[in-house]
């Protein structure tokens, strides 16, 4: 039996890496008494697969992993038990059984919603920079890919971006950024608002999967259709992106 786990990563534990989180979960699953299935072969590994990596230092309400279990777990009790075995700051929010054939997290996540805190410019200047960025039809970014410099238009990946107001140390932003096809990372996006603008805090609020043109929260996509609220309304730009993504995945 496979399950999909949604968890949060907050506070000091945000400074551990994606690989560290994987190791922490491997141990916590054992402590919580879950019988994780192991791969066959010379060097058996527990069958756990993670979604998109979260950069070191970023926090999240919506991280996911899929676990292949050798024996079922009590779904009501399991989130509490697993959370108890996790360090402070990592908490299991919900668990859903994964229907056979559900695409993997890596394959199906199409975009993430973010909140950012940026420093270096005041709110008015940030607001100005945001609207200028959104007005551009093309934003070309140079990237190093395996030693080769390539130019990518990342504008289509910025699905939404708006100023949310002042925060404790700077200015808050909210964004929806695509993670399939053309993608952009938060640490690439923020410097586009100005040379002096620095990302000081980032929170991943939601991740969305695309199932037949409809965007679903990954637990809902796992087959937990009771969670109607986890279907996302999408605007025209994103609809186009979603359609592109759907078209892309079919080819």
């Amino acid at each position: 039996m496979k399950i999909r786990v949604r968890f949060s990563k907050k506070g000091r534990v945000r400074f551990i890496s994606h690989r560290d989180v994987a190791r922490v979960f491997e141990r916590a699953l054992r402590v919580a008494g879950a019988s994780v299935a192991y791969s066959e072969g010379f060097s058996p590994r527990p069958k756990i697969s993670f979604g998109l990596a979260l950069s070191v230092g970023f926090e999240s309400d919506a991280e996911y992993l899929d676990v292949d279990l050798a024996a079922p777990v009590d779904q009501e009790d399991f989130p509490r038990k697993l959370s108890a075995a996790l360090p402070d700051g990592l908490m299991v929010v919900a668990v859903a059984p994964l229907e056979p054939g559900t695409p993997s997290l890596q394959q199906s996540i199409v975009c993430c919603e973010w909140d950012f805190e940026v420093i270096g410019l005041d709110e008015a200047a940030i607001t100005q920079a945001v609207s200028e960025l959104l007005e551009r039809s093309e934003v070309v970014l140079e990237r190093d890919r395996k030693g080769k410099r390539t130019a990518v238009d990342i504008r289509p990946a910025v699905l939404s971006l708006k100023v949310a107001g002042p925060t404790a140390n700077g200015v808050g932003l909210s964004a929806t950024l695509a993670t399939d096809q053309v993608t952009i990372r938060p640490d690439e996006l923020i410097p586009l608002l100005g040379e002096s603008v620095e990302l000081s805090r980032a929170w991943r609020r939601k991740q969305w999967t695309n199932v037949d043109g409809q965007q679903l929260e990954p637990l809902a996509a796992a087959g937990d259709h009771r969670r109607e609220t986890h279907v996302r309304d999408i605007g025209p730009i994103e609809l186009a992106a979603a359609q592109n993504a759907a078209a892309g995945s079919k080819t």
Binding site: R12, I16, G57, P87, G89
Partner: peptide, 10 residues
């Protein structure tokens, strides 16, 4: 490696 400085070990 900021995780070196946060403690929080079991």
């Amino acid at each position: 490696k900021p995780a070196r400085y946060i403690g929080g070990e079991l």
